[in-house]
């Protein structure tokens, strides 16, 4: 690749790294508007991270090095995943056939260490959270990879950058409904993987009902900052995938940014208008999303 392109992609990564915490600000502002509150500042997430980075730490006597290594690994996985992500009209820093498999792998590694670090505390609540995370993500994984199979079939490209640019610039004729189904399936995965309503409620204060938050209960200081920042990067990454599937991402920086903002507002609306599902119903949601992606795949099969 040329130096200019590399610089441009690196610039995209830096921009994403800076902008990721803003998403949660937009979501929270939307929810505040719906509830008639003024809400926290847009930049609250940045303040939180900076404050946490400046603190010391307290560790439970039960924990081992796994607990301390977890946040660092989670952050590294999320950061590396940015290198695989095409943003705007910029191709990803690293693009090769099958790079989305690596993306899924990195996110899975991140989850693995989130769960093991949670189990390291010996707390029953954290164990419960890890158990739920394991169950729901196991169901989300096939939906994610099947949705990407649909995109691969539609575009004939096997890398995220290739898919994004073809979806934006040369979409297959009459692929609208299929793309909509795929994007919907990806959106459900996005909600589930990022612990949003209707799968998990980021605002809950009851340990028994949490999934993601409960796994970080014992982390504090810089460790918690790493975890929170990694989660925000993950929100950004999955969001970009949804936006790209809609063909918005590859159209240029502003379309991409606008798509992300719209997505954040959409999450805010979802969280303001929906209640979270009972935990027993979550598998149904995931299987429903799987059905959507399979339906999309079947539709691409019959398309002449």
């Amino acid at each position: 690749m040329e130096t200019g392109l590399i610089l441009s992609s690196a610039g995209g990564i830096a921009g994403a790294a800076l902008a990721a915490p803003l998403l949660s600000g937009v979501i929270n502002r939307t929810k505040a508007v719906f509830a008639g509150r003024r809400g926290q500042p847009l930049l609250q997430a940045y303040h939180d991270i900076i404050k946490l980075l400046g603190k010391g730490a307290v560790y439970s006597r039960t924990t081992t090095w796994v607990f301390r290594a977890g946040p660092v690994i989670q952050f590294s996985c999320a950061a590396l995943a940015l290198a695989l992500l095409p943003m705007g009209s910029r191709p990803a820093l690293l693009a090769f056939p099958g790079d989305f498999i690596c993306l899924a792998g990195l996110l899975a590694l991140m989850r693995f260490f989130l769960m093991t670090a949670a189990l390291d505390t010996g707390s029953s609540f954290e164990g419960m959270g890890a158990s739920r995370e394991a169950a729901f993500s196991a169901l989300a994984e096939p939906v994610f990879l099947l949705s990407l199979a649909v995109l691969a079939r539609l575009t004939g490209a096997l890398s995220l950058s290739g898919m994004a640019s073809r979806l934006a610039l040369h979409p297959a004729e009459g692929s609208g409904p299929v793309l909509a189904l795929t994007a919907l399936a990806l959106f459900v995965v996005f909600l589930a993987e990022n612990a949003r309503v209707p799968v998990d409620d980021p605002n809950t204060h009851l340990e028994l009902t949490m999934i993601h938050e409960v796994m970080a209960l014992d982390h504090g200081g810089p460790d918690l900052a790493f975890i929170q920042y990694a989660a925000q990067l993950k929100l950004w990454i999955m969001g970009i995938l949804v936006v790209n599937a809609l063909g918005l991402g590859g159209r240029g920086g502003w379309a991409c940014a606008g798509g992300m903002a719209a997505l954040a507002v959409l999450i805010g609306i979802v969280e303001s208008t929906m209640a979270r599902l009972r935990l027993l119903r979550v598998p149904q949601l995931m299987i429903g999303a799987g059905a959507l992606s399979l339906l999309a795949l079947l539709l691409t099969l019959v398309r002449p």
Partner: peptide, 20 residues
């Protein structure tokens, strides 16, 4: 990242406690 964390925590109070 590990080096950064080490640098951040260097010289700061590291407490020990029970699991929450």
């Amino acid at each position: 990242a590990a080096g950064f964390r080490r640098w951040l925590l260097g010289g700061r109070p590291i407490g020990e406690g029970g699991t929450w």
